[in-house]
Structures are given as C-alpha cells and as structure tokens.
C-alpha cells in the first residue's frame, strides 16, 4: 500500500473515472497544458487528449454554463474553478440554471464543479474562501467537502457518478499535508449524504468538516488527556446533511459543538443547531456551541489570518467549557 496525499487522491479518482467512462471530461483554466494551478490534473492532457482535457478562457460563467449544457446532453463534465472563490462568477449558472433544471424541465445536470477552498495558506480575501453557505440553501445542488485522502478519492468518484450537480470543495491546506495509505486495486466510493465518525467519544460531540476535522481531532486528543472523551463527526457531505448521523451522535454524548472554517453568520452551524433543536432537543445537556471564523473578510497578514480562522486551541477552549457545563 502506497501512501498518497489528499491531492494525489483527488487526481487518482479523476483519472480512474476518466478511464472508466468516456463521457467524463475536464474543463477549466490551465487544467491541460499547465496541469492545473495546484497540479491536480497534471499528466491528464497527455493521457486523455485535448478533446477531454480542455483549457478554457477565464470565463467562470461560461465554464459552468457550458458544462451544464454538455451535461444536459448526457456528458459528465468536471469543471475546475482555479480557486473556489471564483465560483461566485458562476453563481447565476449554478443557482438559476443548474439547480433548477431537473425541477423545471425534468433535465439531469450531472456536473461536478470542484476547486480549492479554505485558508491557512495566506491566500488573502480572494483565494481563501469557503463558499458552501452561498449554495447550501439552494435546492437541487449537492455539496461535498472531503477531509481525508480516502474520502477525497471516494467523493470525487461518487460525485462524477452522481446524477445531480455536485460542488466538490477540496481544501488546499490539506492538499499535501494529509497523507494516507490507500489499498491499490480497491474501488473507493464514498456515499454522498453520509457522515463518518472520525473519532469515537462519550462526553461531547464535535460536528465538523473539511480542514476543521483535523483541528477537531487535535483538540480531541488534548481533551482526552484531561479525561474528556470527544466524538468527532466528519460530515463529508454538506448538502444534503446526514441528519441521522448528527442526531445519533447528539443522542450518544448529549452535547454538541459545531466547528466550521466558514464565517459565523449564516454558516452551516446555525442550520445544524436548528435541526438538533427540532429533532433532538430533549437529548441535550447543554447549549449548542459553535466555533467558526469571525465575520470578516479573510485578511492576508499571517497574524490576522491566524486570529480570524478557528485554531485547535479555540476548539479546545469551547469543548472544555461545554464539557464542564
């Protein structure tokens, strides 16, 4: 078993699906000759040719729009946003055209829009965003956000095979930081809509996703030394949320801390808290807490970025307070 990075896992997943299904093609800025800004699609042009690995103009609306049109015709496009921040240019395409096509016209739009999200890399305000909340309330879309190499591979493959449009948020801070041994020869498919218990625990549940899974696991490790047993639930899919898994962990530990890297107001934590209120209020032994980014644009300066984004110690502090409640 070879150890591969999160980035290599995405690459392998894409590669395998391109090999498996001729309807799958890749389009985006610099994805072909250059191999992708982060080299996710390095070598694809040589293997699959210009007809399936397509360098586009810097035209995010047309990239997503053309992908949607091709998907309406039965193809399986994977559109890359060079940085996921740029997806805002395609907001009209995704929310008005793509998300509603099945409802208004009975028309499938099996596209994947993927791109690097997230901070911790000093990317500044336009290269560090987490756009999930902007799409989370749009019926007709799915959103996935892998934390592990296994899920990075399993979710890109599942997203490509899915008959609905999927936004695939890959965290750039995890690209080369996370490594994992994946068995060769095994087909890895992560089911969309299913969370994963990343760590078992008894006293408190942390529900989280993306890079925050790792911060939360570090926090859980520290709390363990204090005798606080923390369960960490990695959502993996943000839309649709795995309500059953969230409710199950709350019923088990009776305390819920939600951690996300996205800003606080209107972030996913609010929706998750509301659902627990509706579905498992009686099971709570404390207030639902959240650790999130501050409600500001992401600043460049390292000291400022580190302050704005949730850090392991922020999670530890909140969890310790909640555990003692």
């Amino acid at each position: 078993m070879a150890e591969i990075t999160y980035l290599e896992a995405i690459r392998q997943g894409l590669w395998e699906e391109m090999e498996r299904d001729e309807r799958v093609f890749i389009l985006g800025e610099d994805v072909g000759a250059y191999g992708g800004a982060f080299k996710v699609t390095d070598g694809f042009l040589k293997r699959f040719g210009e007809s399936r690995v397509i360098d586009t103009p810097i035209s995010e609306a047309a990239i997503v729009g053309a992908a949607a049109g091709a998907a309406h015709m039965g193809l399986r496009p994977v559109a890359e946003m060079q940085f996921i921040d740029f997806i805002s240019c395609a907001y009209d395409m995704l929310t008005n055209y793509v998300a509603t096509a099945r409802y208004r016209a009975g028309l499938a739009t099996p596209i994947v829009v993927r791109g690097p999200c997230g901070g911790f890399v000093r990317g500044g305000p336009f290269h560090s965003q987490n756009p999930e909340a902007a799409f989370f309330h749009t019926p007709g879309l799915k959103i996935v956000a892998p934390a592990t190499a296994r899920d990075a591979k399993g979710l890109i493959k599942a997203a490509i095979r899915d008959d609905d449009p999927v936004l695939y948020l890959e965290h750039k801070w995890l690209y080369r930081r996370i490594k994992e041994s994946l068995p060769e020869g095994e087909e890895i498919l992560t089911p969309i809509g299913r969370a994963r218990v990343a760590r078992e625990g008894r006293d408190l549940s942390i529900v989280t996703y993306g890079a925050m899974v790792w911060k939360s696991l570090e926090a859980a490790e520290q709390l363990d030394k204090d005798g606080v047993s923390v369960e960490v639930l990695d959502l993996r899919t943000l839309l649709p949320l795995d309500d059953a898994a969230i409710v199950a962990t709350v019923k088990k530990t009776n305390k819920l801390l939600i951690v996300h890297e996205d800003t606080r107001t209107g972030g996913l934590a609010g929706e998750i808290a509301a659902r627990i209120n509706e579905q498992a209020f009686e099971w709570l032994d404390g207030p639902i807490m959240r650790v999130t980014a501050h409600d500001v644009p992401l600043p460049y300066a390292p000291t400022l970025e580190d302050f704005v984004l949730p850090q392991t110690e922020d999670v530890v502090k909140a969890a310790r307070w909640l555990a003692a409640y």
């Binding site: 035209s59 609306a61 047309a62 997503v64 729009g65 053309a66 992908a67 949607a68 049109g69 091709a70 998907a71 309406h72 015709m73 496009p77 009209d92 395409m93 008005n96 055209y97």
Partner: peptide
C-alpha cells in the same frame, strides 16, 4: 444567462 448553455450543447 442561457447563452453559455448553448456553447455546452454545441460542445
């Protein structure tokens, strides 16, 4: 907004 979709159909 639908004009890019036409490009996709042509593609």
């Amino acid at each position: 907004g639908h004009i890019p979709l036409a490009a996709g159909l042509g593609f």
